[in-house]
Design a protein around this nucleic acid. Structure first.
Length: 293
DNA sequence: CAGATTTGACCGGT
DNA sequence: ACCGGTCAAATCTG
């Protein structure tokens, strides 16, 4: 599938990047500021909270601005999102589509025709990790499919809050390599849910991850999260995710690789997904028994 | 018993 | 027609 980041927005893209670069600078300032305050930690740290918070606000604004720019550039996708808000309740019979009510089909299954829309223009980005990492969202598996020319089946997940909050984010995860375990997660759409069970201590604990084996790519252009994208460098310097989810059983090698991996989720529609990086191990068991199916 | 997962069938794009 | 994505009934699990 090629859900792609819109290619035809050179100017707005530049603006977005500019904003994001700015955000990175703010993060750097924040880091040095926090480091500084960490040095003399004996005293009360109430005073430092103010400038730090201010910077955080700036960062959020920068990201918000750039993200809205990106969103405007792809009105197509926005309308798609809005339209999709009630895709799921085909029960009531949205079933707008043309013509053929021919009921004759078969009654073994309820008439599902038109019951879902295939998302075509949603943003997507992929991430490759040596392990199954928790991205902080609550995912619910809704399908699994054997993919042509793929060694392992692909697993499909949607946001748990699809129904209660209309969150349209989905992702699929595919194991692409076995010996050095490698998983490719493709995120499609944006979280519109407020699934923030826990505010992570990311902001204050911002040492850059030592081992960034995560690969992020937006549609075709692959970005390592080290320096290629100012956007992710910003995240990298401000977010550190520490997973402690237990890996099911046999895959011990995964379990110890895991602690050093990090991943960053953005939710372009909202402000930033800083606050969403919580716990909630979601992907855990299903992928490890691929061959058993 | 409610929520999550499994799984076969259906649907839409190519 | 094929293939990937999604649905929803059946099943599992805590």
């Amino acid at each position: 599938m090629e859900c792609t980041w819109p290619e035809s927005l050179p100017s707005s893209k530049k603006k977005a990047i500019k904003e994001l670069v700015q955000g990175r600078d703010f993060v750097n300032q924040l880091r040095s500021l926090l480091n500084k305050s960490a040095g003399d930690n004996n005293n009360n740290n109430n005073n430092k909270a103010a400038p730090a918070e201010d910077l955080v606000v700036k960062i959020l604004n920068s990201f918000t601005n750039s993200l809205s720019i990106l969103n405007n550039a792809e009105s197509d996708e926005v309308s798609q999102i809005q339209a999709n808000t009630h895709v799921t309740n085909w029960n009531g019979g949205p079933k707008s589509s043309e013509s053929s009510e021919e009921t004759s089909r078969n009654t073994t299954h309820k008439d599902r025709r038109g019951c879902y829309k295939r998302r075509k223009t949603a943003q997507s980005w992929t991430k490759e990790t040596p392990s199954l990492t928790d991205d902080g969202y609550a995912w619910r598996k809704y399908g699994q499919k054997v993919i042509l020319n793929a060694k392992f089946p692909r697993h499909y997940y949607r946001c748990t809050h699809k129904h209660d909050q209309g969150c349209l984010a989905t992702k699929h995860v595919q194991r692409i390599d076995d010996d050095p375990p490698k998983y490719r997660s493709t995120y499609i759409g944006q979280h519109t849910c407020s699934n923030f069970l826990k505010v992570p201590e990311l902001f204050l604990n911002s040492s850059p991850p030592s081992d960034s084996s995560v690969l992020l790519s937006f549609d075709n252009s692959t970005i390592t999260n080290k320096q290629d994208s100012p956007f992710f460098t910003s995240f990298q310097s401000s977010i550190k995710q520490e997973y402690k989810e237990e890996i099911p059983s046999d895959q011990n090698d995964i379990a110890h690789i895991q602690s050093s991996s990090s991943d960053y989720l953005i939710s372009p529609d909202r402000t930033v997904a800083f606050e969403s990086l919580g716990h909630m191990p979601v992907l855990s068991s299903t992928l490890d028994c691929d061959n058993g199916m």
